[in-house]
Design a protein around this nucleic acid. Sequence first.
RNA 1: AGAGGCGUGGCAGAGUGGUCGAUCGCGUUGGUCUUGAAAACCAAUGUACCGCGAGGUACCGGGGGUUCGAAUCCCUCCGCCUCUGCCA
Length: 424
Amino acid sequence: MLQVANLREDKAKAIKGLLKRNIENAESLIDGVIALDNRRKALQTELDSVLAESNQISKSIGILMKEGKKDEAEEVKTKTAELKQRGKILQEESQEIEKELTESLYQIPNVPHEDVKKGKGEDDNEIISEHGEKPNLYAGKKPHWDLIKDYDIIDFDLGIKITGAGFPVYKGKGARMQRALLNFFLDEAEKQGFKEIQPPIVVNEASGIGTGQLPDKEGQMYHIEDTDLYLIPTAEVPITNLLRDEIINEEDLPIKLTAYTPCFRKEAGSWGAHVRGLNRLHQFDKVEIVQVQHPDKSYQALEEMNNYIQSLLTKLELPYRVLRLCGGDLGFTAALTYDMEVWSAAQEKWLEVSSVSNFETYQSNRLKLRYKDADKKKHLLHTLNGSALAFPRILAAILENNQTEKGIRVPKALQSYTGFEWID
RNA sequence: AGAGGCGUGGCAGAGUGGUCGAUCGCGUUGGUCUUGAAAACCAAUGUACCGCGAGGUACCGGGGGUUCGAAUCCCUCCGCCUCUGCCA
């Protein structure tokens, strides 16, 4: 969430930024937050003075009791009744306002970085660059949902049998491809200085709140009712929450973490012909990279992550393009996001395989993730994350782009991990 | 899962209703001494919020309650330890 102090300091900047997200009532939203904060301050001042008075009286009763002046003590006691009543009312009001303030802040998305352009939706995203050659496939080319059947490597029907739609079963060389991607992505991330983490894939409510999936967006996550835990929709949730409520020494920055996890998404209502096959699943695998950086260095870190993810796509020999999301398509919590899309040659469409973002202090404010500077002053950190990478669409693109009459060629970078050169 | 015990500042550990935001020790920081260091000695040393400031308020695992007053008593949730049970 945004910081009230920042909104007060530079309201114009926030309004200008939010306008890029087409939030026309930004000014009244911000004014509302500031008004609530003013009210909160006034209430606290008043409550504090009531409590101060009542503390003082209690103390004097203690002294009177000690001196054996019981009657006087009793007399003083009667005075406190009114104070107590007032204190209680003020406290309730104060809690109410605090709650309202937090809720209002939750409703305001992050202020986009100045490089972000105004736009309505995905059609307005800026294409920053395009790389690689789209392959010319032979006449018998097929989309991946047919290829997986021909070569018997991924089985949706078996998944339906044991679990349900959107839970594929990977078999033989299909399973081996998954394992190859997992090891390849983690090895590369480690070379890049990210520390490997293996977190739980179920999290508690506090973690869901920490990264913003809760409250309000319960629809996305699977909930285990009897133990009140959630299946993670991305490794971002457990990994970022490792740092919740932490104070980092400035010299320990940056913190770079990576994790492989399965990801679970309900994806309610988002099914249709355009998400056939591996394009959208309830359970999929992903390697995530997370970075926590000093505010002065976070955009440099974003570029590094961006370049790193591109290097993976290059090594996998996939044609891809890089987009900078416009205000209208930017995620709620992000200040700047690059999307990487690979060309899937038989579907003849671009598939989003990674999204790398700088959240600035939007996440860390909620997480209370701070660093201590040389003067021992505490400041919020910047958080960044990106997929590096999500498996299913990468696999879809590899299968489609590399298909030939005699089988599917495995990219060179993966061959030492798969142990085979062809899926045939 | 059952029974019992426990949860206090960076660590360790007192405090069982009243001037306790909390003794002492270790650690950390500054100083004295010393050519320098160590030792010794002296001093400082939690977080957040409100206030121009003086200062005030809240926090002793989380939440709620009793009381004029709670680290201390009660309820509840969470976590840890010991024993018993179950189990990869």
